[in-house]
Amino acid sequence: MAQVAAEAPVPKRQQIRPFNVVARFAPVLFLVVLMIGFSILEPRFLTPLNLFNVLRQVSIYGLLAIGMTFVILTAGIDLSIGSILALAGLVAAVVAKGGLDNRFSVGDGSAATGFGWEVAALAAIGVGVAAGFVQGLAITRFKVPPFVVTLGGMSAFRGAALLFSGGGPVSGFDEAFVWWGQGKLGPVPVPVLIFVLFAIIAHITLSYTRYGRQIYAVGGNPEAARLAGLNVQKIILSVYVITGFFAGLGAFVLAARLNSAEAVAGTGFELTVIASVVIGGTSLFGGTGTIFGTVIGTVLIGVLLNGLVLLDVSAYVQQIIIGMIIVLAVAFDTFVKSRRRIL
């Protein structure tokens, strides 16, 4: 650029504005305020036992929310995860019990009759991945909107779970299986460790890999992504496989925690999970959001529910409060974005 050699004027470094900092960490701040509030109102709240209890409770939602974050980043949605979870959990349970004939056998289902937890876990994840793949194909090949495909999946997989279970729960697994839901490593419940491990893997994937970049690109502007040479359809298909994977993994951990799997498991999970992701700042329009935000959103809902239970607030009122918080979170996000543009 010899003709234009003069140094270009560089704009002044942007100032750090308190408003922006507050806006960025709003979910964290809200969580902290909530925890301080609950611990003042209810001394039982801020005990290690209770806090680990909260984390154990949210870890299954959290696993599902990690998958959901991938989907929502592409401006998609997956309503079927609760149903996939039920089906995958039953398959895992039946595998652990050694087949359909033995599924109602009582007892700890010792390894003599069934397969080990490894096979059961793989079966659950396999069911989840397959279900996600089928839905992803319908979305990318036949151009059916994700909302419709997964609404259909929500019904179909639940039906499949009911059909497969024959109505009753499948209970009683061996100790090694149950450890994945009820065990502890030191003071930390195993499900919490699984959640944290996969949150870290997902964070690295989204922030530090090419695939992660591609997901943000497809969500931010699918046409621009296509014209930049990305295989948009393949990327969209992949995120539904990922939610399927996490639904399968969540199914295994849930079955282990309850020492039981049943066809009605996971009913309504999709709404709580979508709420966690949205409260964590991921935009339903795609392209912006983080796993960190999702973790915070998940914990926030867990803390809120736990605190309300400790304070003896009725379950009905809890639902009302959760609903209002979802709307307020998105309203706040919209407000912050409009402010950012003005500033």
Partner: peptide, 26 residues
Amino acid sequence: LFLSQSIRANLTVTAQDRVSRLGVFI
């Protein structure tokens, strides 16, 4: 453009081969 995203994400979207390790990590 991916308007809501960084210059980093926008500039290297086509040339990921040039800025990746093991073909996977950025």
